[in-house]
Design a binder for these strands. Structure first.
Lengths: 212, 212
DNA sequence: CAGCATCCGCTTTGATACTG
DNA sequence: CAGTATCAAAGCGGATGCTG
């Protein structure tokens, strides 16, 4: 992109990451970890392949990510965030926080990758009872299951199924998000197609209290 | 801009504020407060007037800002952030934090508006001695003076000269920033043209300690 | 003068096809 | 798998003109 040519920290940051797709590429590398080109492409529906290639090049030059040519037998190129790139976590988090209210009106034909929900899950959920034994929530929505683990005062979310979940939640993305964050009561959510198998009290465990 | 069409909070946020110039328009409204069109233009060097007009329209529709037609005799339109727009403060702050390291190599011919420095000033400075009487630092660099006030554990920065400054700092933007944030010792800064009038211990008062 | 709209040349993006 | 090549369409920047 063309530089803003302004001696301002925000403008200089946008000179690097303000280009279209750039922050979503960073998002993918954050929710997937080191990734191959084709996996990035799959997680960025709508991007043109020439753009992805060009953006990866410029983000590499800017020191945000780096490529690693894995040796045989893997023989694949792997893209990963540099420490400097990982420092964008705060920017991503604030962006997700601000964008979350825009999710309430549902998918409206948008593409869905359930990994994208690991970010809001970690941001909006808390372990309200740190001293109780951990709970594991498997969420089945979108393209693949994700797992939320709460224990010891921390909440961690990742892609993939759980080994021994306390409860398995399934339904449409919008409804699942509503139920998880407590915006939707379990009764309301069930009337919108939400299903669960196991102990639903695990949801309350991670929902933020009246303090926010 | 064209929507990313992804059911992801970050993508939906970028659908609203990801367009070129949008976040800098928000920056201007944050550092200037409610502003007229021409003042926005002056604070956004490089923007084409048709783009500013179009962006103001779409940001208004998105609920980020609103326009107020001041009655005669002022007879000017004033643009201001809505509460929803002010919620972008966290995004701006993280962006400035991430972009700050990109400021160390100097202005390189970029445009400068000293108001832009109020953001990093509030973010990177702290009142290290909350119980002492307040200090006021007037900073003269770029196009107009800005004032930093520290007291009671808080640091506030604003555009404009100070009434009764503890110290007046002047020099090139890069050097002033370095001296303020403690990256440059006063001796080093002076050798790069920094000048001050008054009690330089006010700088130490606001510089973050070894804890960060 | 404040707040735009119009026009025009250039750059960026998006879609698709193709390749080592 | 990891891109490059091509080309039409959209977006941007700069200049200028218009209106209350």
């Amino acid at each position: 992109m063309r530089s803003y040519r302004q001696y301002c920290a925000a403008a200089r940051a946008l000179d690097v990451i303000g280009d279209r797709w750039n922050l979503l590429i960073v998002r993918e590398l954050m929710v997937r970890g080191p990734s191959r080109y084709t996996d990035l492409q799959a997680g960025l529906p709508g991007i043109a392949t020439n753009l992805l290639a060009e953006r990866l090049r410029t983000l590499e030059q800017a020191g945000v990510l780096e490529r690693e040519d894995a040796p045989p037998p893997v023989a694949a190129t792997v893209f990963k965030l540099t420490p400097r790139g990982q420092e964008l976590h705060g920017v991503m988090a604030e962006l997700v926080r601000w964008g979350a209210p825009l999710m309430v009106d549902g998918e409206r034909g948008d593409e869905v990758r359930s990994r994208w929900f690991t970010f809001p899950a970690e941001l909006f959920l808390t372990d309200t009872e740190p001293d109780k034994p951990p709970v594991v929530i498997e969420v089945r929505t979108g393209d693949e299951p994700i797992t939320i683990e709460a224990g010891g005062g921390k909440v961690h979310a990742r892609a993939g199924a759980a080994e021994d979940p306390s409860v398995v939640l399934s339904g449409k993305p919008q409804v699942v998000l509503g139920a998880l964050t407590g915006k939707l009561s379990l009764d309301d959510a069930r009337s919108h197609g939400l299903q669960w198998d196991g102990d639903p009290s695990a949801f309350e465990r991670v929902q933020p209290g009246p303090a926010g």
